[in-house]
Design a protein around this nucleic acid. Structure first.
Lengths: 239, 239
DNA sequence: TCAAAGCTTGATCAAGCGGTCAGGTTCTGA
DNA sequence: TCAGAACCTGACCGCTTGATCAAGCTTTGA
């Protein structure tokens, strides 16, 4: 789905290394049409394990701070095996981001042309916040990538995300014109919903420390949801 | 002011190195009471240059990703000279965070016992947003530190920031009891104001890309401020 | 049964890292 | 004028890093 956006990253693939030696052919399937690896799962299973480990390590230490050795250890494979499946660290990083883009966009389809603002906004906030609760590491990795300048996901931001925001903004503007909500700059409204919901994943350490907790429990997320929904619905005077 | 919070970090100072050799005495002033270096500026000027460069590099690459060589290059000094002023990378990082803690707390004194909610909240949001506009790099470095687990600033979060939030929360609760604003969980209200204002520094790359701009100009911040203030004031039904 | 493709891994490499050192130059107060 | 403190820096060190290699092992299709 969102595979194409980071295609440019793929093209960046470790140029120095690539020029030094012929490219290893990509295995996993045979050349002729017949499917091989009938269970076809060795590669898939190993790639998934490595990606999952990489997600956690990249999220905690950033691209530069993460080491392939640590990722390999966490995935339970020897380091050369990691490099067998992901030739370079850059490509591994691309693979991880690839997974995340879909999560990121997923909740936004709550904002539909026909929907009632109150329900649509409440559901959107709820889903985004659930992402922060259940998948904090992808959220943190995404945040790291943006803070670092978003070089790897720039094409995605400029094309796909921008287009999507324009579409959703039109819907929100229509709500205003129909007298269903107060006038608002829809793009900024979205930025603020993103910020509020993601802060409970990205800055969980700060929130937990301030609240005097070890980690954010369901009660914290419930209170956050209530505060957030109330703020947005009343803030827009949703009818 | 906020110097003591990271004292624990100072105690961490490069233990391996420190044990291997006697500590170099800290220069800059003579031992006897008389002030030396009457202009006293060589050390101050160099430390400031290095801190400024370090802030930018740490903000972009995180603690692990930043290299002392790059910081030194950016500061225009040879690498050994950087280590002359900041013995270890950890201590340099501590120095940078030290500067930031004060910025972070600064705006919060807008929320005062006597203040009217409408004005206090509007001014707080405005000041926080100005921080994001004028000092985006400290904000991004702070965000990186929190995402990475906040190990270096944990004492600050758990003691000073927590206490401050408790104080400000009491004030906000009093506003509710006085019937000046709707009931709200004050801690979460603060988390959301932090999130919304800082998103314009931390995730500037994403916002710029979505808006189709090269960088966030004053118009963007003006619109953000307007949206944010309106959302919070109406969301709390401030009288 | 077997050859080829896919998968695994201990050993190894060059590059970059944080940090040190020795020996210089400049500044300061008396 | 001068001794000592402060400041500066090219060369270097031990270690970790991303990545590679070569030699194995396992799976697969015919």
């Amino acid at each position: 789905m969102a595979k194409t956006e980071i295609e440019s990253l793929r093209r960046l693939r470790d140029m120095p290394g690539a020029l030094r030696r012929a490219r290893r052919r990509k295995p996993g399937r045979r050349m002729n049409g017949t499917a091989v690896n009938v269970r076809g799962t060795i590669r898939e299973r190993n790639e998934a394990r490595i990606l999952k480990a990489a997600e956690a390590v990249f999220a905690k230490k950033g691209f530069n701070g993460a080491s392939t050795a640590e990722i390999a250890r966490k995935a339970g494979v020897p380091k050369p095996n990691l490099h067998y499946y992901f030739r370079t660290k850059q490509l591994l990083y691309a693979g991880v981001l690839d997974n995340i883009l879909e999560i990121w966009l997923d909740a936004m389809d709550e904002i539909r042309p026909g929907a009632e603002p109150a329900e649509a906004l409440a559901r959107y906030i709820t889903r985004k916040l659930e992402s922060s609760r259940l998948l904090p590491e992808p959220s943190r990795l995404w945040a790291m990538e943006l803070i670092s300048g978003a070089r790897h996901v720039e094409p995605f931001l400029k094309k796909r995300l921008r287009r999507l925001v324009q579409q959703k903004s039109a819907i929100i503007r229509a709500w205003t014109e129909a007298g269903k909500i107060d006038p608002v700059e829809p793009e900024h409204l979205l930025f603020m919903i993103w910020a509020m919901t993601q802060t409970y994943a990205d800055f969980a350490a700060q929130i937990a420390a301030v609240l005097g907790k070890d980690k954010l429990d369901e009660g914290v997320f419930a209170a956050a949801r209530k505060t957030m929904v109330s703020l947005v619905l009343k803030g827009l005077r949703v009818r």
